[in-house]
């Protein structure tokens, strides 16, 4: 092997180690029979499922898990559906207020929702009194709120993609006597699979990681999401609950990875159009 190739491998190995150390550490903590932070080493020093058992029996972990899947799944599905409708209108119709609507959407979507956490809390206190099913401590209320925060950016993302689909395709259908609804569902939607998939994935990841809004709105143990529940787990007993927390972290990664695998064939195209993660 030439020196150049050796250098390339050396660098790649270094970066890979950097990427993997925290993950291996989490894996090691999850398997650590003692389950504490200070007894966890980088490489596993034992293997047991004690932490998984403690997590399942001692906490409401699986309830949080279900809540997170429901909240992230519904938010992804519904926000993509609603945004696709709006994007179709912006892409294919010319109407009064279109320009204002598009620019307005662009400016409004820049507002990070949690900046308005105080007003949102007040709004949802009122909703709680009137329609408890969508108020505080209700996953449905939070789903609505998340959708409201996501539709703006998704509409823009999808409108850009719809614009790149030749108009001739759906116009031909209209000429042939189809309705706009048919043109939308039979031409635009199937051709937009990449952007629908990437939007759904990005919303799912953003939602399952969302902490602030969920921590203010979902306080009951039966309503918590994974982010709030796992945070609470190590907020008090940081050292001794670390093993349980690590198991929870690994289990939380599963839905994202599965969804990614499922949507992967569409994603290569949409990757650069998306946003970032943090």
């Amino acid at each position: 092997m030439s020196r150049e190739m050796l250098a390339r491998h050396g660098f790649a190995v270094l970066v890979t180690v950097f990427a993997l150390v925290p993950i291996v550490f989490v894996l090691s903590a999850a398997l650590n029979p003692l389950g504490t932070l200070d007894s966890t080493t980088v490489l596993p020093n034992g293997a047991g499922l004690d932490n998984l058992r403690d997590l399942s029996t001692g906490t409401s972990f699986w309830t949080w898990y279900r809540n997170s899947i429901v909240v992230a799944g519904m938010t992804a599905l519904l926000s993509v559906a609603v945004s696709a409708l709006a994007a179709y209108a912006f892409s294919r119709f010319r109407f009064h207020g279109r320009r204002v609507g598009l620019v307005g959407l662009l400016v409004i979507q820049a507002f990070p929702q949690f900046l308005a956490i105080v007003p949102l809390y007040v709004i949802f206190s009122v909703i709680s009194d009137t329609w408890p099913a969508f108020g505080l401590n209700s996953v449905w209320g939070v789903v609505l709120l998340y959708i409201g925060g996501q539709v703006g950016v998704n509409t823009w993302l999808m409108k850009g993609f719809f614009d790149s689909i030749p108009r001739e395709l759906d116009e031909a259908m209209l000429v042939d006597g189809c309705t706009h609804r048919q043109a939308f569902t039979r031409v635009i939607l199937p051709l937009s699979a990449p952007i629908l998939a990437i939007s759904a994935l990005l919303v799912f990841i953003a939602t399952i990681n969302e902490f602030l809004v969920a921590s203010v709105f979902l306080t009951g143990d039966g309503q918590r999401t994974l982010a709030v529940g796992l945070y609470g787990l190590i907020a008090g007993e940081r050292n001794s609950s670390f093993g349980m927390f690590a198991v929870g972290t690994l289990l939380t990664a599963i839905p994202t990875v599965l969804l990614f695998q499922f949507l992967q064939r569409y994603i290569v195209h949409g990757l650069t159009a998306g946003s970032v993660k943090g």
């Binding site: 609603v82 945004s83 409708l85 709006a86 179709y88 209108a89 912006f90 119709f93 109407f95 279109r98 609507g101 959407l105 409004i108 979507q109 507002f111 929702q113 900046l115 308005a116 105080v118 007003p119 949102l120 007040v122 709004i123 609505l144 709120l145 959708i147 409201g148 925060g149 539709v151 703006g152 509409t155």
Partner: peptide, 23 residues
């Protein structure tokens, strides 16, 4: 266009515009 835009408009007004105005 209204048929396609109505849900988005409602959500944006309720959960983005109104909180911004309130802020």
């Amino acid at each position: 266009p209204g048929k396609y835009l109505f849900p988005t408009t409602l959500l944006i007004v309720l959960f983005q515009l109104f909180p911004i105005g309130y802020t």
